[in-house]
Design a protein around this nucleic acid. Sequence first.
DNA 1: AATGAATGAGAATTCATTCAT
DNA 2: CATGAATGAATTCTCATTCAT
Lengths: 200, 200, 200, 200
Amino acid sequence: MNIQLVGTYMEPIADKKKAIFKSTMELVREHGFHGTPMSMVAKHAGVAAGTIYHYFESKDKLICELFNYAQQQVIAVVEQEDCATIPFKACFANLWMGLYTFYRNNQDILRFFEQFVNSPYSAAMPRLEEDKFYTLLFAFFERGIQEDQLREVSPRTLGMLTHSSILSIAKLTASGRLSLDSKELEQVHELLWSGMARHH
Amino acid sequence: MNIQLVGTYMEPIADKKKAIFKSTMELVREHGFHGTPMSMVAKHAGVAAGTIYHYFESKDKLICELFNYAQQQVIAVVEQEDCATIPFKACFANLWMGLYTFYRNNQDILRFFEQFVNSPYSAAMPRLEEDKFYTLLFAFFERGIQEDQLREVSPRTLGMLTHSSILSIAKLTASGRLSLDSKELEQVHELLWSGMARHH
Amino acid sequence: MNIQLVGTYMEPIADKKKAIFKSTMELVREHGFHGTPMSMVAKHAGVAAGTIYHYFESKDKLICELFNYAQQQVIAVVEQEDCATIPFKACFANLWMGLYTFYRNNQDILRFFEQFVNSPYSAAMPRLEEDKFYTLLFAFFERGIQEDQLREVSPRTLGMLTHSSILSIAKLTASGRLSLDSKELEQVHELLWSGMARHH
Amino acid sequence: MNIQLVGTYMEPIADKKKAIFKSTMELVREHGFHGTPMSMVAKHAGVAAGTIYHYFESKDKLICELFNYAQQQVIAVVEQEDCATIPFKACFANLWMGLYTFYRNNQDILRFFEQFVNSPYSAAMPRLEEDKFYTLLFAFFERGIQEDQLREVSPRTLGMLTHSSILSIAKLTASGRLSLDSKELEQVHELLWSGMARHH
DNA sequence: AATGAATGAGAATTCATTCAT
DNA sequence: CATGAATGAATTCTCATTCAT
């Protein structure tokens, strides 16, 4: 079948559309938005330039849809952590490691995200309140506070601190400028935890 | 006088050059690199397009020099903290607040940096080892470890964690999506400190 | 039945072909040739883009055939005036009003014609001598001269003057910039007649 | 000097701008709007493609400005007829012949006009009431009526009839499908006049 | 030093047409 | 017959850069 499932929406995505997503991601990572002409995407994806415009209104739309597409994958990482049955602290550790591992293994996405959120494209994106990823993330910390596990700091602050720590360490290790073994990684999120946790 | 001092190098910068820097910074912040043609910089800076090429070899060079120019200012913030005479913890707090305040008051620079480091431009920039800002930052944490104030975590890790926390909180408060009073800000870097500090 | 008669040729025209003609006419009127892509015609006509190419070799052919198709209708208007049994002057009046009424009620055709004859498409069309409409028109005035009803001015001149007067008044009233009641309309062609008629 | 006067506005027009106007006029006449890419205009005018965009915002603007530019010339023809000192009938004859001669000698403009007014471009143009050419024309006939020289037919009707007669005859003779000597031309506008004139 | 008109390579996008289903 | 995804040449337009003044 010429289709594939994405996220939890069961939306079938044509092979060509996926190929265009994949190529755009890889090329934007390497060359940036501006350095990635549609002709390059087309060539890399093995389709004609015009074909891209069957699937996407414009380059801008392609970029924004790609962001959403990739965002879904990050959301899936957050959602798969079933925190209901394990201690909050362990859940925090899982979340940190889960996201870290995801970004570490998906450098394209990490780099694409960083470019995207700092570009004028992001102006067209949902506000923090409507952003599913951040909604989930903030809710997680909200819960931690209410369960008396975390200090009484705004959940947004905790969420941003956690996420930015994940991103910065993932970029650092991915760039090869620092190598951290699993023990050291544990140290990192443990460090964060000990800062954020309420001390009884 | 038509000159001005920058950094500690005593390099005089012509008014026009400065105007070009300023305009580029503001425009790139709003429109991104790609959305900021040289003609727009020229108009905004009140000079002719050709004039820019008296001061800068190319657009790429202008962008890179602007990065260095702005970087100098961040370095100045780090350098002005005289940590020799105060306790390390207080110095950490000063550094965090100093950088936070700088970025908070210089949104243009913050946004420009974020765009820059995630773009292909940054490929042309010095490696972490040769980057004066990071050298200073890492040295600071190195000292903290050697003084037995910080946990034995790689200084790079500590530096990146600290810097990313500053950037993410500055972006968050600057965007207006979160408002933190000075007490809450203190909480944030205190949180970080308590995670990183060696507990005797 | 899925067919219909057109003109006097008894050529059956498939519903789809007619729908394509109709859509093209309406869309070209509004958007011009260039502003009317085949995909738009297809959508408007409720057929697939490829289907148009079953009926028409190319866009150019479609346009030219549409011109002929519409031309038939104008010819029908001219032919239905049976001038053999009524005075020439009355026949002139009927012809003027017949064509005026037709164009007035068929703005699409009027606008399409005007665009067509002034475009490079018309280069591919029959010369004046081979154009049935003009042949009929010129013959009419030829007869008027021979019957000593009209001044000795070239029939072509009289034909063009008459036709252009009809078109310009139809465009003017259709545009809503001028409103003429039936008496005023009569005045107009009476005016023309009194200019062209031989005064005995 | 690198300038030239246009109309009565004394607006200097750069040589290149004029060359672009001239080329566009000639090329549009022959190939139509759609058949005249900007690259063709550039080549024909001896300028780079980008240069056109120094003078004109877009192709559409170029076309519209060209229309106005050419319109000025037609207006000049109308304005140069000083009707105050000669009989109205003679003035009508002069006007008819003046415009006829202008269009006859400026086929490019005639063809361009016809294409323009029947295209979607004309939608962007001033309404009849604000159109200087038609304002002048209608005022002329208004005067004829008030001076008791013309029948009591709406000036707009008379104006459109007259102008359309000029255009159709100019097209006919220019196409070579009809040849009219000066006597015959006189016959044509005399014919019109006798239709429109009030018979005392 | 400064100007800004001119350049032209390159980018995004369109659309007539084809063809496998 | 009918479809509409796919094609890719052609088009409009942008913009970094140059250079005569």
